[in-house]
Computed example of a mutant assay.
Amino acid sequence: MIRSPTPLLNTKLKELPKNTTKRDLTAEAAALEPHHRWFVTLPLFHANAQYYCFASAIRVGASVAMTASFSASRWVEQARELEVTHASLFAAPIRMILARTPGAMEPLKLEHVWYAQNLAPAHHQEFGQLTGVLPRQLYGMTETIAIVSYDRSQPPRPDRIGRPLPGRDVKLLDPVTRDEVTGEAPGMIAVAGTRGKDLFLEYLDDTVTTSRSFLTDDSGIEWLLTGDLAKSDEIGDLSFVGRVDDVVKVSGENVSLTEVEAVIAQAPGVLEAAVIAAPDPIRDFVPHAYVVARSGAKELDIDSLSTWAEQNLAPSARPREWHIIDELPRTSVGKIRRFKIGASES
């Protein structure tokens, strides 16, 4: 459990400060105005609902429409019925919506969609056509309280989390040495801030994990070590790579399991995929893929999946084993519990 500042859901509008805050910047980033309406389908204990949607709505006087739970097959019709203009999701629920929405469905007319974690280019375009607006990727986590960065590209790109918001200081660190990385090498995202203000206070009753999550530099600045990897391009735009433990060495080459999953999810007949790193006596680790078929699709053929991987993935990233399963284990916000897949394999 994460102990953070007082939840914004309990803050009355008249008590909000009049100076510019990160809630103002979040509302501005989403071009939010009083006549707009957020569509919230993810749990309220998560930063996505509290800080990205509710807090920005409170700031500008917009409204929020909520559902009791997330339904991929009903998401489009619920959004239409509730007359929403803005939505915020993760990549995995977006892929589920695409797979379970009839192709003849009339597109929505949303004005803004946030999403977190990587979407493949084809899914990015397809969801944009379904909602009426290309989704825009952001980066943040419950521990960072508010949004850290977002893609400002026009049109939005599927592979960018962009540059930090004003007032957000970010640097990329080597996960082992904690030295700042240079060039386009991936590094762990570190976010500067003050605990209990614009960073979480602590993990409840877990001082060891809390201590490991922060680094104080020689200037006395405290940095949250997020455990997420990103790369920076020549203009400072960041691209999300995955969790530190989602990037593995295969024959000496770095392979992002998150990126492999995004490619496999585009294969014909595939609803979603999870990839784990399996020990290998020669290559250190090799990818093993677990794939869920789209509803109504023909039975998946492992030979066809292998061919797809050969055509779309580098040799080191191609799964050495394929498993067709009924569903993937998930958290309450739709993230894949990859460690449970590994446990089921052993």
Rank of each mutant, 00 (worst) to 15 (best):
A146L: 13
D24L: 07
E234G: 05
W38D: 00
Y139K: 05
R3Q: 13
H123R: 11
T41Q: 09
L172E: 06
D179H: 10
S211Y: 15
F90R: 02
G167K: 09
V148T: 07
W114G: 01
T26M: 04
G140A: 12
A99E: 01
D280G: 04
I324C: 11
K109C: 05
A91P: 04
M188W: 05
L225I: 15
A49P: 01
P135M: 12
S316R: 04
K335Y: 08
H46E: 10
Y139V: 04
A317H: 03
S4P: 04
H124I: 06
V170Y: 01
M188L: 14
L215S: 08
G193D: 03
G103K: 12
E15I: 11
K340E: 09
T194N: 11
I341W: 05
K298W: 14
D326P: 09
V76K: 01
V76N: 01
V263C: 10
V148S: 04
V170H: 00
R318N: 05
G342F: 04
R163C: 10
H86E: 00
I341F: 08
G103N: 14
P17D: 13
G183I: 03
N312D: 14
Y115E: 08
V76Q: 02
L172Q: 06
P175K: 08
A27I: 00
H288G: 01
Q154R: 15
L9F: 12
W75F: 09
I221M: 15
N254I: 10
K14S: 12
D246T: 14
G236P: 06
E345W: 10
T101V: 07
E272C: 04
D245A: 14
E180C: 14
T131K: 02
L9H: 11
I302K: 11
F39P: 00
Q50G: 06
G269P: 04
